[in-house]
Write a protein that binds this DNA or RNA. Sequence first.
RNA 1: UCCUCGGUAGCUCAACAGGUAGAGCGGCCGGCUGUUAACCGGUUGGUUGCAGGUUCGAGUCCUGCCCGAGGAGCCA
Length: 568
Amino acid sequence: MPVTLSPQRNPVFTPHTPVAEATPPPQPSATLRSQLWSDFCSPIGPMQGGGPCSQGHVRTWSSAAESPYLPEVPDGCEDGRRALRRNKRPGRLPCCSFWSRIRITSEGILNCSDGAQGKRRKPMAPVVYIQDIDRYVGQEVTLRGWLYSRTDKGKLQFLQVRDGTGFIQCVVFQKEVPESVFAAATRLTQESSLIVTGIVRQDPRAPGVPGGYELGVTDLQVIQIADEYPIQPKEHGVDFLLDHRHLWIRSRRQWAILRVRATVIRAIRDWLDSHGFINLDTPILTPAACEGTTTLFQTDYFGEPAYLSQSGQLYNEANIYAFGRVYCFGPTFRAEKSKTRRHLTEFWMVEPEIAFCDLEQLMEIEEQLVTYIVQTCLRERARELALLERDTRPLEKVEPPFPRISYDEALELLAQIREETEDENLKELLKIEWGSDFGSPHETELTKRFEKPVFVYGYPTKAKAFYMEPWPGRPEVCKSVDLLAPEGYGEITGGSERISDPDLLIQRLKEWNLPREAFEWYIDLRRYGSVPHSGFGLGVERTVAWICGIDHLREAIPFPRTLKRVYP
RNA sequence: UCCUCGGUAGCUCAACAGGUAGAGCGGCCGGCUGUUAACCGGUUGGUUGCAGGUUCGAGUCCUGCCCGAGGAGCCA
């Protein structure tokens, strides 16, 4: 994994450049790009900093105003000419690269034909990421990012800077930087983009992620002064924040959650890829309901209806007969009018499917996968979880085996909870007849009784999907299993052993009033080498919410889609 | 679809019993060498969700509507 950017590729900043002149005023967006290139790439800054060519050749470089690519070099700058000739395809070369060559021969370029003298420039500080800052203590480095917040103490300013990989405090002392640098820091508004150079030092007072390190600023270049930023570092209403989701994701909590999400997704893929699973994508546009029960989003498919997928499972079942162990990983769409913190209309789900696998083996796979996800997050995202103030002790207990209880036992447990509680409201909520699926209150109360995720298996056949294998000797119960996360988080996976007998499957389609024609291909899978097989789906957002300890799924996905929201 | 709560400055909220619409934050100006959502002084900021009604007078009371949130239902 690259941890630093090569200075050769990013020679964009020169220490001791007069910042006041290098800093653009706020620009209309149409001109911003060329303005940025001008600041990044134009040698005007360095030439001025090191002693300008008296003929002002550099000002004629077209890169500054027109193109990010190769500048013109005026007659008389022989080193510049030679550098140009060395480039086989000069037109393809960014001027940043060009400038790095110039830097190597800076004595030459600065000693133009008119004899103007220039000083050798200081070596450029390496451009680094905040997440790697601990490797650079005592060194001068350059960071590129955005101003998170600023505290002005008069002759001293604290800049909280983020670069996508972390947050760090940069300290600007008036005495230690050129006047223009201090002035530039004063002008910075929240979320202004900047390039800052300074000496890395350890200081326990410095906040941030990772924290404990700060940058003693030596130079600062402003890229853009941001307009007044709508989101302040304080509490806001949910509606306001969701309207500004495109900006909200920059804030610390959201940043931390979404980094955990990325790790959850990678852990899922890592584990499956290294346990014999092959990733096969299943269609998102589908001809009919997979289950026949849920409400789907309908689209116009060249005059015919097509529906956004709510599951790739049926296709996975085809895929296992070609590949053995497979998984699909994609978005899932549900048009139900659910209006709770546990539901999104668009969410992500991984669905493994395994040939020659019964329900018990399925549970073993699930608990291993879930354990791997949790342990990977604890190991690799400790900083983010700390920022979220997640108590990780419950997560540390997550390891196989998870408790397994049957639906019947769960009902007994619920009855017992109703006996014990004084809360009349809760007593009412927990009422349930044999044959019904659990609602949120049931799941919540059940999981409070366990420290680890708990499997509930053997649900009533009528409460589940048509394709589930009946329990041997108890046809009213099926070989299904849900995994309920602890701490009240509820269902994070749902799975089952699938029916492998074609006749039984056909009978079930009839009982569920599903059109057999649409499922002919699915029945085929039972006609040609049918084997016992099982699979499950794991909801990414619910898993992320549980691991992060957040109470609403909408924060576990970058741009949530809910009943009342498709913007931004 | 049902229940509950809410909509006042850019943001978070206040405004007693119907009587001049306010505070903090943010922005702007000034001060401060260790701030952690800094602090201090000054300053800026309003179609009180929309429509109608009662009243001398409505953010406040009444009617209707719109929007949002939480929960239920629904939901592998």
